[in-house]
Nucleic acid binder design. Sequence first.
DNA 1: GTGAAAGCGCTAACAC
DNA 2: GTGTTAGCGCTTTCAC
Lengths: 345, 345
Amino acid sequence: MTRTSTLKEIAQKLNVSVSTVSRAVNNKEYVKEETRERVLKALEEYNYVPNEVARSLKKQSTRTIGVVVPDICETLFGTIIKGIDQVVSPHGYSIIVADTNESRKNEQKYLELLYQKRIDALVLATVDLNGRKVLQYLNSKIPVVFIDNIPKLKVPIESVTIDNAKASEVAVEYLVRHGHHRIAAIVGSIQETTGYERVAGYKRALISHGITVDDNLIRYGNYKENEGYLCMRELLDNRYQTSFTSVYIMSEMMTFGAIKAIRQYGLRIPEDLSVVGFDVHDKAGLVHPSITSIRQPEAMIGTRTGELLLERLAHMESGQTCERENERFLVEPYLEIGQSVWDVI
Amino acid sequence: MTRTSTLKEIAQKLNVSVSTVSRAVNNKEYVKEETRERVLKALEEYNYVPNEVARSLKKQSTRTIGVVVPDICETLFGTIIKGIDQVVSPHGYSIIVADTNESRKNEQKYLELLYQKRIDALVLATVDLNGRKVLQYLNSKIPVVFIDNIPKLKVPIESVTIDNAKASEVAVEYLVRHGHHRIAAIVGSIQETTGYERVAGYKRALISHGITVDDNLIRYGNYKENEGYLCMRELLDNRYQTSFTSVYIMSEMMTFGAIKAIRQYGLRIPEDLSVVGFDVHDKAGLVHPSITSIRQPEAMIGTRTGELLLERLAHMESGQTCERENERFLVEPYLEIGQSVWDVI
DNA sequence: GTGAAAGCGCTAACAC
DNA sequence: GTGTTAGCGCTTTCAC
């Protein structure tokens, strides 16, 4: 059972002062080369590992970044976390993750916990639209970056997300190019930016192609699979009146639900109905027919967030005050083309 | 820009001592009810949030658990992390994640970093079979739990994993019950417990069903998709000599690769060849035909690990020494039945 | 170049 | 019940 020793112990063994040892450990100047070597050797010998907790207390910085997400199992968030970690860990930062399980209450609890732990920065995929708890952070001086969803707060906010409106434009554009004019849509909650902006982009794209927006073709769900299923059923029930040839579903789980409804109606994809989904991952390449889907460059969202964090963190370290600006960093979504869209002749 | 205040500041404002405030904050006894209320009110007013860093330094415990995994994007690890978090966060513990990206070097780097941060416990899905760096932890007094893979170390080790041999038995059993006697196998690295135990279970199951083990039916890969593909091709190339009717592939990515090879040979699953995979997830239910696969109860591995951690942590707190025992906690794998296995008549 | 000492914010032993 | 004080392990200023 080895024990890690402290600066003080090392200093005593060598008959030097703690400050000398500290300087050697931290590669500071003003240490005679000979002394430095003696110290470095002793560090090995006595199994010294710097205590980051003590350092944190002294420096008022924990080199720790809190990342709060609704569901770490979603590839989207897993990949983002990985991207952040890749960028920040070489700089000595670690990531504390919190999985809120889509619960506002958990989100608040975790925000509080992380605040106590004095994280140096926060990345938040909030499910709390009017998030009051996060104001504590926004009023403090640590960097906060929102991802995925942006809360409705009357304060400057920084975010890294895809351009949600653009995503819908890309989807509609693709369908139109394949001859579709009657394009149904299943939207998530328009309370959230992810829902609101996507539907706005959809409408705008239709209009710019000279297609009239038909509210009978739009259904609103809550991102859950079952809602996607139900929305799709409603759409299909009215199919003879509305005669749409394609459907664009604006979230992953709702896409799955919608496809189930389509199959249940005995319709074939894409022969009977064309489908464009959102965030559909098919790592295995086993889905058949493969689903044409809007995708987020997740890794890039992660690395971009990481870089932004480092930038802000460095800025802070150089003693700047934390002037928050309202900055939305947008990354480009893209269309992953599968076999779920059929040409309308 | 609000600032969080300190115990000392609160104490001064109220003309009481820091210890009184501390006692009130921590709900300790020996505080007059009236004083407690005054303090509690002041905490609100002056925006006091306990500084966990200072607490950690004093208590020599950070209430932080390090979780080191090769790839956080894999559903397996994502779900395990979520499970751990669910169990430990109500006890005030947070999780620091480290994604080693399957690299031994990164693993070592992260272990060092986390050691400096003085994590209270470590969960490790190692890729470093002879992991020397982890010995630092094993020689220290903090709990260490291995998941997924177990390194070859000559010290007592605790782990939470599925029963890998059992997994193979379940797979083989199922195939035999469906009339298969010539069952090919694609194995990961037998250097790793996940490979070694799975192939051992496969052989044992065959024997217990009176089937001779045929080494021509076994191929060894390295868990990567492409190796699964290549192994499957080799097997198929010899199909007329070996005449197997089914194949059991012992890892997720290799399963994907193998299926691609099978399709490339123009064979249908399951009509021409039956397939049992490992760790195949189909959240969307979109894969067709659905793949019968061994599955790990991931969430349970997570929660079991979390509980084990709490147990050990509580044990420590009550001042016990950390006697390590060699304990493998096994959870039961299960077979998720799809449509990829055909009856041999 | 080196050392002494203050102090980061807190807990806990001890004194009153 | 409450206050005083000594540290937890480190960095950093200032004196030598």
